[in-house]
Design a protein around this nucleic acid. Structure first.
Lengths: 341, 341
DNA sequence: AAAAGTTACGCAAACGGTTTCGTGTTAATA
DNA sequence: TATTAACACGAAACCGTTTGCGTAACTTTT
């Protein structure tokens, strides 16, 4: 087992001081040509690589960024993650991922753990529970320590920091407006509980589009499903008790489930009923029929989040008056078979 | 901005030495009651938390594990990742993820970067390119340095280390055998190029099942698709030029694509043609018809990989004669609508 | 009262680097 | 020949912790 070689080893072997070795490897002007060459050759031969941890300790920079997301087996989050990872990697950063599993406690624990020197900044999307509790002290603590933080998608206004979101309200508006323009009148919304701020925004867009088109929102056309463990019955009942000719779903899975049950009921898509979902994932592309859906540009979102974070990390100036931005990414409606064209 | 407090700050404030503070916080017997209480109270008040980096440097243990996977927007890998992350987190480890993007170079660069002190061990699945090149020097270097390594799913026999795989050959055998038992005779295999060892194993199982049932393998019933950017034409042509009554696909996506095109051709599933895929992902569950598929138990795989790795990391004994295991997870065939029952 | 043992703490080295400053040797200048 | 500058390198501090060991001040024993 080859042990990792350190400056000390090289110094001892070459009978020079550690500082000479360090400088020689950095090609410092201070060191003579012969010594430099000797040291560099030796280092190359033994494949010397500086120890990251030692360097981190010295510079107080880890070149790691912490990403905390609610779930990893999830198309949208992995897409964002890919954007983060690509940008970060290209700029010399590594990514430490923690999954909060939609739990407040895990989110807190993971943040505290990472905040003790392991990372230079955070990128995160709030867990469901955190949004429910409306408790953001862990975020506040981190920002007060001067650790940069970027929130994406599931954000909160309680915390001053950089944010990246999509124009949820407007795209929902446009989606519903489009449904109305194709003659639909009884448009349902299938959503989650309201504590998800994105769901709230989408609901607002839904309502506004209805109203601007002279329709009024009916509570019974809004179905709120639990985030986990949806059972078919709720959906079936919803379709049985209401006449519906179009559905906007706040995510892809809800849309697929609804389409299946509508089809089972004998409805033809999109002739009798149209569907639009959020999250342009693999399901939307390969479902039958393929689903018209809102592309959230997750990878771009991740890339921008990483860009904002790294910029903050590397801006030496800890200006007294920090300035925070909220970047809004334009979502795109991708039309497929579940809506008439 | 509250600066992070260190032992030095506490020491200065309380007019004791740094070592006294350190020992007091660890409740050492060496320190008097009064001093201990004073220090502990102060530390709690100012929310002192030791710096992870300093501790890592001291112990030569980072409590980080490096995970290198070919892709993150991918159901199987994220599932495995979830298993790794859960187990690691529960045992005090954080996870640094690098995505090789199926590229040999990225795999090498990322490994070298992380190997310089950032992590205590690796869990990885080989990139496509690495398997093609058959070049594993980067793995060899890492293991020679004494850094524990666990390979999963896409493994190689060239490297001595712990491994976690599924019984690909047998499950493919069982799948094909099942197809034959339902009366199918012209069974196709849709696979990738052979340099994926898992594809090779699955192909072996396919062939053996045919032969054991008195059928012989026909090359023209084997379709090799490129791993990326599949175009429908290749598949259509394959179906047009061959009479096929069952298909085994080495992944979920191939199966979905094939099913769509078979349906388009007017074939009924499973009456005219059956399908079995690998990877029990979201597509299999929600496609029309739902897909009979091989569940690879990704989460379990990740959990076992993490368990093996952490055990190696924490076994102080760097025994001269290391002993490596290959854990084989039993895959399960999940029957759905794409096969008759 | 002298010797020995406790108690409670500080010093310093170590982990693996970087960097500032000081200094001995040689070469150039006055 | 004395003064100074340039060169090439080493000592030491520092990042934040941990820990073995030394020791001053008491307490106990004989």
């Amino acid at each position: 087992m080859k042990q990792k070689i350190t400056l000390k080893h090289i110094a001892r072997e070459l009978e020079v001081s550690i500082s000479t070795v360090s400088k020689a490897l950095k090609n410092s002007e201070e060191i003579g040509r012969d010594t430099k060459e000797k040291v560099q050759a030796f280092a190359k031969l033994y494949n010397y690589k500086p120890n990251n941890i030692a360097i981190s300790l010295k510079n107080k920079r880890t070149k790691n960024i912490g990403v905390i997301i609610p779930d990893i087996v999830h198309h949208f989050f992995t897409t964002v993650f890919r954007g983060i990872e690509k940008y970060a990697n290209a700029h010399g950063y590594n990514v430490i991922v923690c999954v909060s599993d939609e739990s407040f406690d895990k989110e807190v624990i993971n943040m505290e753990l990472l905040a003790n020197g392991s990372i230079d900044g955070f990128i995160m999307s709030l867990s469901a529970e955190t949004q429910q509790k409306n408790d953001f002290n862990h975020l506040k603590e981190v920002t007060e320590q001067g650790i940069p933080l970027v929130l994406f998608d599931r954000v909160t206004e309680e915390i001053d920091c950089d944010k990246v979101v999509i124009n949820d309200m407007e795209i929902a508006y446009r989606a519903v407006d489009k449904l109305i323009k194709t003659g639909r009148k009884r448009i349902a919304l299938v959503t989650t509980e309201n504590y998800f701020n994105v769901s709230k925004k989408r609901a607002e867009g839904y309502q506004k589009a209805l109203e601007d088109n002279g329709l009024k929102m009916e509570e019974r056309l809004v179905l709120k499903l639990p985030y986990t463990e949806v059972n078919d019955e709720m959906i079936t009942k919803f379709f049985d008790t209401n006449e519906i000719d179009a559905v906007l779903c706040v995510n892809e899975l809800f849309a697929i489930l609804c389409m299946r049950l509508a089809q089972k009921k004998g409805l033809r898509i999109p002739e009798d009923i149209s569907f639009i979902g959020f999250t342009n994932g693999i399901l939307s592309r390969y479902a039958t029929p393929t689903l018209t859906t809102v592309e959230q540009h997750g990878e771009k979102m991740g890339q921008i989040a990483a860009e904002m974070l790294i910029k903050k990390i590397e801006s030496e100036i800890d200006e007294e008056e920090e300035t925070y931005r909220t970047e809004v990414i334009e979502a795109t409606l991708i039309e497929r078979e579940s809506t008439p064209n």
